[in-house]
Design a protein around this nucleic acid. Structure first.
Length: 640
RNA sequence: GCCACUGUAGCUCAGUCGGCAGAGCGGCUGAUUCGUAAUCAGCAGGUCGGGGGUUCAAGUCCCUCCAGUGGCUCCA
């Protein structure tokens, strides 16, 4: 806590200095007096921990601190001010538009309007209006109004009236004027529109109406920077991110493709399949060590199975259904029913627990057409799935192992991840008490793991709470991959039992879990993460052996064959183009190792190796190179 | 599913006012035999997303369906 000065009107600053404001001196003026060198970067202030405008005049003693774009709070203020600028521009272009609200988000801001559907020319015109406002350097001026005046001011805007009605009786109603545009707002704001020089509109879309029966609102999204240089940097980063898009790389590297005739159903091409199989091997090796057994269960089940599992009631809309001889069947959207049936197929003993059953089967989910997104959201997918049938005591140690394994796996891929704890949804199976218990267990495990996590109330699966792992794509959008779900409901519904040491019959708990999630989404994320530069162990083509001329075609074939015998994916290239051209092709393919053999190498049994990402080439013996590569592959090293 | 936008050669894209469908890359053929990010020449390749309409004439205008993109909703 900031120490309050006893002396009336004395203002404490972050470095411990105290200043006495002259009458009417604003926070901005005080801060400029305190630190003139940094004054230009200050866009707002904290007064006793509360964000205020620089124009705010502190009447009493208190603590004052500057806010800049570098501070999260300052960043948000600039985003929010940018939203105001959008509203000003949009109302200039479409005077009958009703602004609703325009908050900052994780990565920018938006402003929602009740207005006819927008068009690209609208956006263009709005942008131009915003630029005019920025050039005019219009100040954000705060006014506080009596409620009645505020109601009159916004009489034509029911959304703003609702905010006024919802605000606390004792709260001042404040509005901000910006070059003739007035918006209801708590503030604070940047001093003037010139601060918004680096604002950039990202697009617009319809959003669901805030209330039933209302018409959809139009959302304009954007991001703000205090300077054009910072905006340019951002745009450049985005451009680079677009080049890493897995859909682009997947096409270039021939990893997968989609066709209009099967929307949302990926075709894995030979190169992509190499990656999937390597990932499968990576996970399967772990399963063997960690005491899992593998199973294979049907892709189709009669409706009654889903009625038992609860999917019929809670997931039917997302299922592909089909009729077989007058009976309704559904393609399985998850592997759990099959695992439940196997557990229940004969009497079980506590000695068999924990029973860990893994199944990598194709799953079908009828995702809405508008949500499909390359490999990141598909309708047919394969999870690295397993179900752990456990006693109550085994829950914690089993999940702890899973959390460790997730950390280890992410380290292998150098992926940054975050955990999310999702709790009981509105539509759930079983008793609230079971849920509380399960949620408490997961929370305790996460707390104990020391990894920060987010809590999402109401986001759990219908049968239990879960810990989700989130990975981000190249544009920073988060995607759920791995998941750990604790389920007391399905075992009960399937009447699963085991005989305990006490001779009695007990119902096991089930941990549903995936580590990488699905091959589809994981390969998609990983493609963007590595930008198509696959770690050698995953690279579809690991070594390209190039002869300098036809004369060394035999040498190239021999070298490639030697490497293949070591289990390396090596191919000998032809000499159908100039060497620089063939090197270029292999570089663009992101092959980790390009080996050149010419006359010299043929003579002395060496190879000239070009390692992806390294400058130049180096010479080594064939045996040395073979050992080098196989060691890289064995250790699953990230860099070649 | 909702809103907006987009769909032309394998890929990236041009195609003006409605008037003969184009380029680069890739592919194929030939020449070149090349020392670490593009050798040269020639050739092939198109139901202009599908269907319907307007028109003497449609890649271009209108309707409709499909798919994709960005959001929303939903979710691994």
């Amino acid at each position: 806590m900031e120490e309050r000065s006893a002396a009336t009107g004395e203002v404490a600053l972050p470095d411990g200095r105290r200043l006495v404001p002259s009458p009417g001196e604003s926070a901005g003026a005080l801060l400029a007096r305190w630190d003139p060198a940094r004054a230009h970067a200050m866009l707002a202030a904290l007064w006793d921990g509360r964000p205020v405008d620089l124009a705010y005049v502190p009447g009493t003693a208190g603590a004052l601190a500057p806010l800049t774009f570098e501070d999260r709070a300052g960043w948000e203020i600039l985003q929010h001010s940018s939203a105001h600028l959008v509203a000003k521009g949009l109302v200039e272009v479409i005077p009958e538009a009703l602004p609703t609200h325009g908050p900052p988000t994780d990565d920018g801001f938006y402003y929602d309007f009740d207005v006819r559907p927008l068009t690209p020319p609208d956006l263009q015109a709005i942008g131009e209006a915003m630029v005019r406002s920025v050039r005019a350097k219009e100040p954000f001026v705060r006014r506080e109004l009596p409620r009645e005046d505020a109601r009159r001011l916004f009489a034509s805007n029911p959304y703003k009236l609702r905010y006024i009605a919802a605000s606390a009786e004792n709260e001042a109603i404040s509005v901000y004027d910006t070059g003739g545009f007035t918006d209801l707002c708590r503030g604070p704001h940047v001093p003037d529109t010139h601060w918004l020089e680096g604002v950039h509109l990202l697009g617009f879309s319809a959003v669901e109406p805030t209330e039933a029966g209302g018409r959809p609102l139009q959302r304009v999204r954007g991001v703000g920077f205090p300077t054009r240089e910072q905006l340019s940097k951002f745009l450049k980063l985005r451009e680079e991110a677009a080049a890493r898009d897995h859909r682009t790389i997947g096409q270039r590297q021939e990893l997968f493709f989609f066709t209009e005739q099967a929307p949302g159903f990926p075709f894995w091409l030979p190169n992509g399949m190499v990656i999937v199989r390597e990932l499968e091997r990576f996970v399967t090796e772990h399963l063997r060590k960690a005491g899992y057994a593998e199973i294979r269960t049907p892709l189709l089940f009669a409706r009654s199975i889903y009625e038992t599992s609860g999917h019929w009631e809670h997931y039917k809309e997302n299922m592909f259904l089909t009729r077989l001889e007058d009976q309704e069947f559904g393609w399985k959207p998850m592997n759990c029913p099959g695992a439940m049936l196997i557990f229940g197929s004969r009497p079980r003993s506590y000695r068999e627990l924990p029973l860990r059953l893994a199944e990598f089967a194709p799953l079908h989910r009828l995702e809405a057409s508008g949500t499909l997104h390359g490999l990141l959201r598909v309708r047919e997918l394969v999870q690295d799935d397993a179900h752990l049938f456990v006693t109550e005591e085994q829950i914690e140690p089993e999940i702890r192992v899973l959390l460790d394994w997730i950390r280890e796996a992410c380290a292998t891929f150098r992926l940054e991840y975050s955990f999310e704890l999702s709790t009981r949804p509105a539509s759930f199976l079983g008793e609230a008490g079971d849920w509380d218990r399960a949620e408490a267990i997961l929370a305790r495990l996460l707390d104990g793991s020391g990894v920060p996590y987010r809590r999402s109330a109401g986001e759990g699966a219908f049968y239990g709470p879960k810990i989700d792992i989130h990975l981000k794509d190249s544009l920073g959008r988060p995607w759920q991959t791995g998941t750990i779900q604790l389920d007391f409901q399905q075992p009960r519904r399937f009447r699963l039992q085991y005989q305990g040491a006490d001779g009695g019959l007990h119902t096991p708990a089930v941990v549903h879990r995936t580590i990488l999630g699905t091959w589809e989404r994981f390969v998609g994320i990983l493609t963007e993460h590595v930008g198509g530069r696959w770690p050698p162990w995953l690279a579809p083509s690991q070594v390209r052996v190039l002869p300098v001329t036809d004369g060394q075609a035999g040498t190239a074939a021999t070298v490639a064959a030697e490497l293949q015998a070591l289990g390396v994916r090596a191919t000998a290239g032809a000499s159908d183009a100039t060497l620089p051209k063939r090197v270029r092709d292999a570089e663009l393919e992101r092959v980790p190792y390009i080996v050149v053999v010419g006359e010299r190498e043929t003579q002395d049994g060496s190879v000239s190796v070009r390692v992806r990402g390294a400058k130049g080439s180096r010479s080594m013996s064939r045996a040395e190179f073979g050992a080098y590569v196989t060691e890289k592959l064995r250790r699953r090293e990230f860099d070649p």
